[in-house]
Amino acid sequence: MRVGVLTGGRDCPGLNAVVRAVVRKGVQHYGDEFLGFVDGWRGPLDGDTVPLDIRAVRGTLPRGGTVLGTSRTHPLDHPDGVRRIRENLAEHDLDALITVGGRDTLGTAARLADEHGLPIVGVPKTIDNDLWGTDCTIGHDTAVGVATSAIDRLHTTAESHKRVLVVEVMGGDTGWIALRAGLAGGANVVLVPEQPFDVEQVCAWVTSRFRASYAPIVVVADGARPADGSMRLGGSGVRLSGVGEWLAREIEQRSGKEARTTVLGHLQRGGTPSPFDRWLATRFGLHAIDAVHDRDFGRTVALRGNDVIRIPIAEATSRVKRVSPELYAEAGVFFG
């Protein structure tokens, strides 16, 4: 078979490991030929390709980013997008397309497969870990590790200066990175989008921590918001990110304790993938090419326990996997 591969949406560690596994098994086990589409959905939209073979993917397992490039292109925003993709797949004589992406990229893949009959298999990646139906997504473990390492380092400077350090991590809709890195790093407060927070309670936890002669670390997802809707950034409503600086100012004003903010930003999605992400991405790639040969199109691979299964792409993108109240409550034991 001739198979196309693309990586779409925001980058994350582990993308190259997927492509490598797909190509290695496809060539060695099935005798496939591969073509990489450049810059996410823009590739099949414009017919922009690069050759993919074993030599092209050699040495890419530990590399961050994506050798195929990526973009936030939405082909369905183009009136002739479906026609252009269909024609480019046909022009290159491709039998299937493996799409590695998050909610937006796989959401497009689901529509192209289900509504237009294109032969697509999905692979879930996103540092946010917010895709439904899979225990973990590619890139999430690395992001948690980067955030945890930063929190570990910030403990020492917080103690030295006896100040509050607010660590803002990514998580616009879900708090998986904040919760897991916060617990692993020994944070004293963790704030997530799923649970609007009370600023006065945050200040009470901070004050309690100082009474115990320790300087507190507050971890906040960039999509977390106060319950009273009081946060205003730039003087004109709420926008994503900026919550860390806002919260540090509120803590200083209300508690009288000096506070500083560290925004981890794109550090969480860059660099070398963790061993777990390399393992997960490799397994996803191996199972994705199997799905192609089973002609199990319109489905994505997913992790359940230790098993890689297949579920409809539309199911994975139909809802957001959020931190449950029960899981968040477990972390509350360590607040304050």
Rank of each mutant, 00 (worst) to 15 (best):
E168R: 10
E168Q: 10
T142L: 10
K162N: 10
A212L: 13
D141T: 05
A178G: 14
V100K: 15
V166Q: 09
P119V: 05
V166G: 04
N129I: 11
D114M: 03
G186W: 04
I120D: 00
W132D: 08
A184I: 06
G117T: 08
I127W: 02
D128T: 11
A178R: 14
K162P: 05
L154K: 00
H155M: 03
I217Q: 02
D198M: 03
V192M: 06
E194P: 04
A109Q: 05
T156E: 13
G171S: 09
H155D: 01
V192Y: 10
G101W: 12
V146E: 02
G122H: 06
V199E: 09
C203L: 03
D198H: 08
V167E: 10
D104W: 07
P216L: 01
P216S: 01
M170T: 04
V190P: 02
G171M: 11
G172Y: 12
G182L: 00
R103H: 15
D141F: 05
D135Q: 06
G117M: 01
E200Q: 14
P124T: 06
H140M: 07
L112I: 07
T126G: 00
G117Q: 01
L154M: 10
M170W: 02
H116F: 13
W132R: 11
P119D: 01
V199L: 11
V121P: 06
